[in-house]
Design a protein around this nucleic acid. Structure first.
Length: 112
DNA sequence: AGATTGACGTCTC
DNA sequence: TGAGACGCCAATC
């Protein structure tokens, strides 16, 4: 096997996998948790690959506004919303309602 | 090897 | 107040 290199994708997967049911986080929060700060785009990009993994609930990851920007990447445009609502998260206008309540900050919950 | 893109975020006009 | 542009970092073509 080649050398172990920092797979940022895997780092994102681990954080997303720790998101409890009925909760959601933002790309920027994960990026900041990984130390990428402004690398929120990279987190979203990682989610694209995470979409192929069963243990990575990408539907629990939204932008800072709580908007389901990546719903179009799912099997169906409503799959993301359906999944979140199924977990008790209210969605309004493609945006998470009470996002501040369901917001899950890895830096706080995981207590660095 | 270089250029472009990307499920974002923040600043500026 | 709203809209637009720029910046970040890595992966992909």
């Amino acid at each position: 096997m080649p050398k172990e290199k920092p797979n940022y994708f895997d780092l994102v997967y681990q954080v997303v996998r720790e998101i409890p049911t009925g909760r959601a986080t933002s790309y920027g929060a994960i990026a900041h948790y990984l130390g990428l700060k402004s690398g929120a785009r990279m987190v979203g990009y990682a989610m694209n690959a995470a979409h192929a993994l069963p243990d990575v609930p990408a539907h629990r990851v939204v932008n800072r506004l709580g908007m389901l920007t990546g719903r179009h990447h799912f099997s169906t445009p409503t799959a993301m919303q359906e999944a979140l609502e199924s977990e008790g998260v209210k969605i309004e206008n493609d945006q998470i309602k009470d996002f501040d309540k369901v917001f899950w900050d890895p830096e706080t919950e995981l207590s660095i």
